[in-house]
Amino acid sequence: MTHPGTPPGSAGSVTVALLGPLLALDPHRPRVTSYTLAGGRTELSTASLANWAAKVAGLLVDELGLPVGARVVVRTGERWQTAPILLGAWWAGMTVTEYEDPDLDGGPEESVAFLRAGEDSGCDEVFLVSDDPLGEPATGLEAHQRDFTTAVLPQADHFVPRGLPRGDDAPAVLLAGGGSVGVREILERAGAAAERLGVGGRLLSGTPWTLPDGVVDTLLAALAADGSVIQVPAGPEVEADWTARIATGEKAAATTGIDVAGLPRLD
């Protein structure tokens, strides 16, 4: 089966390969829906996701001046902002990671970190992301930290990559210890997960957005399938009836990381 969101050739970018075709299909379709335990709901259409990703790419390239291949530490969990942060970093030709290791190429002095509010990093630039469903600014920042929302909103809604595109073997995700997963492999994994979901499928996910597996099996799989991901909290404190109501209301076709009666679980 050929999925509209997984075209041949990626110009070395996960974002170009997945978002480009979706914008041409229908920019108004929902792609990311995020719920909080307090009942907050945030939804991003294709166009909104692309605009936020462009702002992130512009922040990294135009304001911070990071070079292609620079390391971007992303530890923001399953909140909606994580999607445009990852897609924006890949659009700008960066390599994302959950880890910080000054002995690796592209040490902290050449990298930026996006973190949950209350966390910190040894990177030169540190942005904190609030858990507010409307993206209200993070509070309690240290002197060397910046709020993500405040920094990204002034950036342009469109982004044009600088220089020549990276090859499909360029690293997309940096692993612990220095290994990496390339653009082509990320897209192949996403395409395989999309096959299981089905074209246009809406995936209800309680899977943590780890890099690369959790992100590939949820966010990227949904995009590759011309579908959408509905991310909900998972754990003993979450009532099954609440999750089931969300699944029904959102017309979920399958789940991952969470069980809902009547729906296939893909993981």
Score class of each variant (00 low, 15 high):
Val173Glu: 10
Leu59Thr: 06
Gly118Lys: 08
Arg71Met: 03
Leu86Arg: 06
Ala70Ser: 15
Ala194Arg: 07
Thr97Gln: 10
Leu204Tyr: 01
Val14Met: 05
Glu110Ala: 15
Thr36Pro: 07
Leu174Trp: 09
Gly106Tyr: 05
Glu110Val: 04
Arg79Asn: 03
Asp259Arg: 15
Thr243His: 05
Thr6His: 07
Arg196Gln: 12
Phe114Ile: 08
Ile258Cys: 05
Thr139Trp: 00
Val72Trp: 00
Pro108Val: 12
Trp242Pro: 06
Thr33Ala: 14
Thr82Trp: 01
Arg166Val: 13
Phe148Gln: 04
Ala47Asp: 13
Ser130Lys: 09
Asp120Val: 09
Pro264Arg: 08
Leu60Thr: 05
Gly58Arg: 10
Thr207Val: 12
Val96His: 09
Ser10Tyr: 00
Leu263Phe: 01
Asp132Ile: 11
Arg71Thr: 10
Leu174Asp: 03
Glu100Thr: 14
Trp209Met: 13
Gly257His: 07
Ile230Met: 04
Gly257Leu: 10
Pro7Asn: 06
Ala89Ile: 10
Gly201Thr: 05
Ala176Arg: 15
Leu128Asn: 02
His3Thr: 11
Ala156Asn: 04
Gly77Arg: 09
Val68Trp: 00
Arg41Ser: 05
Leu164Asp: 13
Thr2Lys: 13
Ala234Lys: 07
Pro8Lys: 04
Glu250Pro: 07
Glu100Gln: 13
Ala17Gly: 05
Leu211Arg: 11
Ala151Leu: 04
Val216Gln: 09
Thr36Ile: 12
Asp124Thr: 15
Val260Ser: 06
Asp213Val: 13
Gly65Pro: 01
Ala254Cys: 10
Thr97Ser: 14
Leu86Trp: 06
Ala38Met: 11
Asp103Val: 14
Glu142Met: 11
Arg245Ala: 15
Glu250Thr: 15
Ala17Thr: 07
Ser121Pro: 03
Glu109Gln: 14
Gly178Tyr: 04
Pro21Leu: 10
Leu115Tyr: 03
Pro108Met: 08
Val181Phe: 02
Thr243Asp: 01
Thr255Met: 08
Val61Leu: 02
Leu86Pro: 03
Thr42Leu: 09
Gly163His: 02
Val229Gln: 08
Arg162Glu: 13
Pro102Glu: 13
Pro233Phe: 04
Leu64Gly: 01
Leu134Cys: 03
Arg184Thr: 06
Ala224Ile: 08
Ile258His: 02
Leu128Ile: 05
Gly135Thr: 05
Glu119Ala: 14
Val173Lys: 12
Leu18Phe: 04
Phe114Asp: 07
Gly167Ser: 15
Leu86Thr: 09
Gly179Asp: 14
Lys55Asn: 03
Ala53Tyr: 04
Leu115Gly: 06
Ser10Ala: 15
Asp213Thr: 14
Leu204Arg: 10
Gly107Phe: 03
Pro67Ala: 14
Ser111Glu: 03
Gly235Ile: 06
Arg31Gly: 06
Val14Cys: 08
Gly58Cys: 11
Thr2Asn: 12
Val199Cys: 09
Ala138Pro: 03
Glu185Ala: 13
Asp120Gln: 13
Thr33Ile: 14
Gly200Asp: 03
Thr248Leu: 13
Arg184Gly: 02
Asp105Ser: 14
Leu141Thr: 03
Thr2Trp: 01
Ala247Lys: 10
Ile258Pro: 03
Leu174Pro: 05
Gly249Ile: 11
Val72Phe: 00
Lys55Glu: 01
Gly179His: 09
Leu175Lys: 11
